[in-house]
Amino acid sequence: MPLDASDYSALEGGLVRMLDRLQAEGTATKDPDVDQYLRDDPNAVLLGLLYDQRVLAETAFAGPYKLRQRLGHLDMGRIADMDRDAFAEVFAQSPAVHRFTNKMVDTTQSVARILADEYGGDAARLWADGDCATVEKRVKKLPGFGPQKASKLRYCLYYFGHRDLSEG
């Protein structure tokens, strides 16, 4: 049976709440500016999914928007090259990008380094070609992305308008 990325009934948790709100109210995160940024910047979607652990999904997906506001960019090469302590300071500003600042600073910079070196700094290149299984395999190679998180990417990409990974 083909995967239907528009059917997220098998999911649980905060992402479901966000997608339900998107269907009912037109905003996933409760902030139209954050939602628009997630639609506009593929790196934001990937980092939002990365941050979606042990915090509210809405907070997680707002994290990349906070970073862009504070840094003035979400350039993966520049983030990867930032002094770790300087990046941690930006990350920890109130409200913090994520409650596990130290771990997420390190993971963010590691993901940014891979994106910069292997994908030209553009997360969209992770999913630009290949079927769903291929894309999930690529994403699982990134720090912080296990099988469960990688499997959620198809829904994020679909609902934020980046790519429909439905198979069939």
Rank of each mutant, 00 (worst) to 15 (best):
I79L: 13
A96K: 12
E136G: 04
D7N: 03
L67G: 08
N43D: 01
R84W: 06
D40G: 07
D4E: 05
Q69R: 11
A5S: 15
V16W: 15
G14P: 11
K30F: 09
T59S: 10
P95F: 07
A150F: 06
K103F: 11
R21T: 12
M1W: 04
P32T: 13
A96C: 03
L47Y: 15
A92N: 14
S6G: 09
K66N: 06
A112Q: 12
H98C: 06
R70S: 08
R39A: 09
Y65V: 00
C156T: 03
Y65I: 00
L56G: 07
L46D: 11
A60M: 12
D85M: 03
R163S: 04
F87C: 07
A88K: 07
G13E: 13
K66A: 14
M76F: 10
L22G: 05
I79A: 14
L46C: 11
A88H: 05
D52I: 04
R78F: 00
T101P: 02
N43E: 01
F87R: 04
A128K: 02
A150V: 13
Q93W: 04
E12Q: 07
L115T: 11
L47A: 04
Y51K: 00
D75M: 03
Q36C: 02
Q109S: 13
S6F: 00
E118L: 05
P95E: 10
E136F: 05
D129Q: 03
L22F: 01
R17H: 13
Y51M: 05
V135D: 05
M1P: 08
R70F: 07
S6D: 03
A123Q: 14
L157G: 02
V139Y: 02
M1T: 10
G121H: 01
L38F: 12
T27K: 04
L165C: 10
W127L: 05
D35A: 01
S9E: 08
E58H: 02
G72N: 07
Q36L: 11
R17E: 10
L22I: 04
C132V: 10
G72H: 01
L142V: 06
E136M: 08
S9A: 06
K137R: 09
R125H: 15
T27R: 02
K30R: 05
F91S: 09
F100S: 03
L142Q: 09
K66Y: 14
T107L: 10
Q69S: 09
R113Y: 12
R113E: 15
R68P: 11
E89I: 03
R54T: 11
T29L: 00
A123N: 12
H162N: 00
M104I: 04
E25V: 14
A60H: 04
L153G: 06
S6N: 10
